[in-house]
Simulated scan of single mutants.
Amino acid sequence: MLANHTSILFSSEPDISLLSNQGTTVGVIEVKGGADPAGALERYGAAKKSFESAFRKNSEVRTILVASCITSEVHTRIQNDSTISAYFNLTEILSENSRQYDSFIQEVFSLLQA
């Protein structure tokens, strides 16, 4: 729980839930760490399934995909996918002095109004 009574919940499905101070899920994050390009579409599909489940519970939820391998095909699908609010490259987030890290943190904490 954060100082403003919002919460970050780590679980298996979705990987991370962002909860408002009323306990409403305002955001979900799926982390896909696999680096094999051959499995990129499968990992995207798994994340999409989790996001669709979150939308069924709250149509206003924001969804964030964090993946280490975003192939050109996955990138194209993400661009045309209304169930994904934002996406980030995991390797870039973890890089030192990364703008992606700053953008990711800003996205998460803006949802939590923190």
Rank of each mutant, 00 (worst) to 15 (best):
R56P: 05
S53A: 12
R62F: 12
I8T: 06
F109T: 04
K49M: 05
T83H: 11
R62A: 11
L9H: 09
G34V: 03
Y44I: 04
F104P: 01
A67I: 02
S85C: 00
Q106F: 02
S11G: 10
S53R: 12
Y44V: 01
I78A: 00
G39K: 12
S95D: 07
L112C: 14
E60Y: 07
R62P: 02
E30R: 00
P37M: 04
A46S: 15
L41V: 03
F88H: 04
L2E: 02
A86E: 09
K49F: 10
L111N: 02
Q22W: 05
V26L: 11
K32I: 07
G27A: 09
A114Q: 08
F104V: 03
C69V: 04
A40C: 08
M1P: 03
A114G: 12
S20G: 06
G23R: 15
N89K: 07
A114K: 10
N58Q: 14
V28P: 06
E73F: 00
L94T: 06
S68K: 12
A54Q: 05
A38G: 14
I70F: 01
A40Q: 13
T6K: 05
S7Y: 05
D36K: 13
E107Y: 03
I16C: 12
V66Y: 02
Q79W: 00
E30A: 13
G34M: 06
S95Q: 15
T91E: 13
I105E: 08
D102W: 08
E30Y: 03
R43M: 11
Q79M: 11
F51A: 08
T25R: 11
R56N: 13
E42N: 02
V31P: 10
S72P: 00
D81V: 01
T76Q: 10
L9R: 10
D36H: 07
T71W: 00
C69T: 12
I93L: 02
L18V: 03
Q100D: 15
E13Y: 13
E96N: 09
S98R: 11
L2N: 10
L18W: 02
R77Y: 01
L2G: 09
T83F: 15
L65Q: 05
K32H: 14
E52W: 04
S7L: 07
Q100W: 05
G23W: 06
S11P: 01
L112I: 14
P14T: 09
I16M: 13
E96L: 11
K32R: 14
L94S: 12
F10S: 13
L112E: 04
S95E: 06
A35M: 10
D102Y: 13
R56C: 14
I8R: 07
S50C: 14
N58D: 08
M1D: 01
T83D: 12
R77Q: 08
V31Q: 14
G39E: 10
F104L: 06
R56F: 09
S12E: 14
A47K: 02
Y44C: 00
E73T: 13
E13R: 09
R56Y: 05
G33F: 03
E73H: 02
Q100S: 08
T24E: 10
S110D: 10
N97A: 15
L112R: 11
Q100N: 06
A67E: 07
K49H: 15
I29L: 08
L18F: 01
S11I: 03
D15H: 14
F55V: 04
A114M: 09
